[in-house]
Amino acid sequence: MNEISNSSGSQSSDSGQRTSDSQKIVIIKYNAGNIRSVKNALLRLGYDAEITADPDVIRKADKVIFPGVGEASTTMAYLRKSGLDKLITSLKQPVIGICLGMQLMCSFSEEGNVDCLNIFEEKVRKFQMPEPNAENIKIPHMGWNTITNVQSPLFDASLEGEYVYFVHSFYVAMGDHTAATTNYIHPYSSALQKDNFYATQFHPEKSGSVGERILTNFLKL
């Protein structure tokens, strides 16, 4: 268990000081909810991260995290307006998109019918309720589900079949860059990888010790 920090203690800053293995980690700041939970997860693992929208800081970082909770079309509009769209696609260091971050890295999303960053050619679709719905399937897909056929440096073999935490109503279809598969209504891409770009539909920062192993694998790339 982690040390319980005192409520009266000072809150950790967003300075993103270099950690013991001296890598610089940044979390891209944009109009998305609960970005701080990723930073908290890194702090629990002994890494600090800077939450920033500064293009120079992002470009120079060793690792870039592109988190996200929100709606695709409004978020894409924001990324385009701020120039973050071109910046993200030009990055050469390891980049990981989480949840909406992953969906925005795809070519197109049915959420607001918007063209996205096109790092991955895969498309983002809306889950459709099965008819008849004998198994009482719910949308959103919310809770713990398994990742299978894991194939990426993000995952080691021990992560095959492990449970991770999901909350989403849109999914990435299976494709050439599928790095993990999850079955909900049908199989879909729960992780993607292409060159230096990684992405997870689930929230590693909320997926207990399994999520911590995945984040650690990313940080060790």
Binding site: S7, S8, N40, A41, L43, R44, Y165, K206, S207
Partner: peptide, 13 residues
Amino acid sequence: DLVKRIARNINIP
């Protein structure tokens, strides 16, 4: 304040 401590220390939703 408690919610902040929870968020820093707990790794599930």
